[in-house]
């Protein structure tokens, strides 16, 4: 564990967290309505996957959790926070495990991240709303999460390759 953050690291965190927040906001602005609630692109995950590959586990966790907290404080409510947090946490854990095995490219990690985000959210909703009926949404969410995750993974993969680690 590090004792103290250097100025460069603080700048790094600030940059990546604000980038993740802007991406969430951009996604929120795009009118994208599908019949099933929870279908989305997950643009902010680009930053998290990037952090997972280029910076480290701890950094990825900090960036993801702070983004969720800050976005919920600004635009959401307690319910929104719980949904987002459960999705983000499960997604982070799954992506971390896949990343650590070293057997998957960012595309696979992204797909798993997208799917597990949806699963985390639907589990949370099932507990909060006390209904098992939401399981009907799961097949659609698994497919949409995979497709969105692949897109995000491809973008993150390109960034990881193109951006020199020393310049981040």
């Amino acid at each position: 564990m590090k004792k103290r953050l250097t100025g460069k690291e603080i700048a790094e965190y600030g940059l990546l967290i604000s980038l993740a927040m802007v991406l969430s906001y951009v996604e929120y602005m795009i009118p994208f309505s599908v019949a099933v609630p929870g279908v989305k692109l997950g643009l902010a995950n680009i930053v998290v996957i990037f952090a997972l590959y280029r910076l480290g586990t701890f950094q990825a966790f900090v960036i993801s959790l702070l983004r969720v907290l800050l976005m919920s404080f600004m635009f959401g409510n307690a319910f929104a926070l719980m949904y987002s947090l459960s999705g983000a946490l499960l997604s982070l854990c799954i992506m971390l495990v896949l990343r650590k095995t070293g057997r998957f490219s960012p595309v696979g990690v992204g797909a798993a991240g997208g799917v597990s985000h949806n699963i985390g959210q639907i589990l949370c909703a099932m507990v909060l709303l006390e209904t098992k009926r939401l399981i009907y949404y799961l097949p659609v969410l698994l497919i949409s999460g995979t497709i969105a995750g692949i897109v995000i993974g491809v973008i993150a993969g390109i960034l990881i390759k193109r951006l020199d680690p020393k310049q981040v």
Partner: peptide, 8 residues
């Protein structure tokens, strides 16, 4: 890795 991704 690509093969693993596809399998996943």
């Amino acid at each position: 890795k690509r093969k693993n991704d596809i399998m996943l």
